[in-house]
């Protein structure tokens, strides 16, 4: 999978890879492993999805505290 196809599949399927066909998800992961451009695109689409679909609330405090304790 190249970056162009990855972008097209992201637009069609969204950024949640568990909703992708297995073979395409694996190909996407291979690309993400090696391409920072793909990683940046993945992050951008994820951010866009969050803006559209996510509820504004949700407490991340417990997880943030856990991270702080483990630094």
């Amino acid at each position: 999978m190249d970056l162009k196809l990855f972008e097209a599949r992201l637009k069609a399927l969204g950024a949640a890879l568990d909703r992708w066909p297995d073979d395409e998800a694996e190909a996407a992961l291979d690309l993400l492993t090696t391409s920072e451009e793909a990683q940046d695109l993945f992050a951008r689409v994820t951010a866009e999805d969050m803006g559209v679909f996510d509820e504004p609330g949700g407490d991340m405090g417990a997880l943030a505290d856990r991270i702080a304790r483990n630094l």
């Binding site: 950024a15 949640a16 890879l17 992050a43 994820t46 999805d49 969050m50 997880l63 991270i67």
Partner: peptide, 28 residues
């Protein structure tokens, strides 16, 4: 920085892993 970016980082991991607990571990 954690407070600013945790939600996004967790979601990125969730999009890769498809599992909330694993995503939170990966975010950490």
């Amino acid at each position: 920085l954690v407070d600013r970016h945790l939600r996004m980082v967790r979601r990125l991991a969730l999009n890769v892993l498809g599992d909330v607990q694993e995503a939170e571990d990966a975010a950490q």
